[in-house]
Design a protein around this nucleic acid. Sequence first.
DNA 1: CGTTGTTTTGACCACTTGGTCAAATGCAAG
DNA 2: CTTGCATTTGACCAAGTGGTCAAAACAACG
Lengths: 200, 200
Amino acid sequence: MTKPPTRIQTRNRAAILSAGLDVFSQFGFRGATLDQIADAAGLSKPNLLYYFPSKESIHTALLERLLDTWLDPLKALDGTGDPVQEIIAYAQRKLTLSRDYPRESRLWANEILQGAPRIEDTLRTDLKTLVDEKAAIIKAWANDGKIADVDPHHLIFSIWAFTQHYADFDVQVRAVLGEKAPYDGASVFLDTLYAKLLQP
Amino acid sequence: MTKPPTRIQTRNRAAILSAGLDVFSQFGFRGATLDQIADAAGLSKPNLLYYFPSKESIHTALLERLLDTWLDPLKALDGTGDPVQEIIAYAQRKLTLSRDYPRESRLWANEILQGAPRIEDTLRTDLKTLVDEKAAIIKAWANDGKIADVDPHHLIFSIWAFTQHYADFDVQVRAVLGEKAPYDGASVFLDTLYAKLLQP
DNA sequence: CGTTGTTTTGACCACTTGGTCAAATGCAAG
DNA sequence: CTTGCATTTGACCAAGTGGTCAAAACAACG
């Protein structure tokens, strides 16, 4: 019988996860330090370790929370509605995710860049299954002549690549664009790109 | 009057840079350790520091070498030749770069992810200037009706994003594709994508 | 061979790192 | 107020970190 968390527990655990997200997403697992995270969370290091037993456990907690929310948009892509609009809507949803959750995007990017030691199994099973399933739907649309015949896997990669680019390479995008806001232009471009590509 | 490097110097410096590239590209600057690099280079740590005075100096040497080769393809894009083919050729060149130099791509990605502390100035000046210049060429093509009217900056971002994705997210791409080779399909997809997008 | 400059190394150092622990503090309910 | 639990902390530790240094091993050349 597990006890319900106290108010303090709820607050501090949330603070730690947010601080961990800040630090891990910028420096990766190995580059992050507990002192940094403790500082960012406004707690002492021993206090931090009172709530999470180890550095690893904070990272794991973040990755688990991330996985669900990260794959949700793709799960939402189903056979109902106009195929071209469905795919564009999916891409727009992913772009919004990049804009609203850039730290999460970078945490993911860091994990993959480092060889995905902690989630490689999940990628090979859960992610592959999900992508193959959605690729089959897209392939069926192509076979029915409802969209242009393009490789569904690379189509999905291109959506991931483009949308996550704005979160992961944020500094570079802003350095190049100067004052211009990135996401409005990206959204328009994305619309045109996939409308033209998928038009049967 | 600087002396020419001995054979041993040439060999060891190259070994260190290659080892540094391996380690920095996987773990980022902070996550990498001199012991790792020394191991990978087959040298002792003090020996490594005989050739480079500090961890930072290895990293800097790598970034400098990278900058040139990384921007070369974009520099090569000029006004001669068929506009659509020019842009597609640029994208293909970048894809080849990702396939042949994935470590360099990941080193860049790591640097940007960490906020580009060491190259932010270069991004704001050299990179922005170069991109703005090429964007102007593309914009002129659009105004002449030679290609479709799309935002040149986001067009360039999309090329970077898509091509670098195959190097930076290699583990994920391979996990999803299984046995299939990534780059052939990517090349075909890329061709279709930009041909359709840019067709006036 | 010996001499001279290059390369390599073992021992070492100060500092940082992830993590522990006992003791101190805060706090809520009886 | 006090009892009991949740929370916080200072002191500490072993291992790892970037980096130094003097001495040893090596290479080249006359």
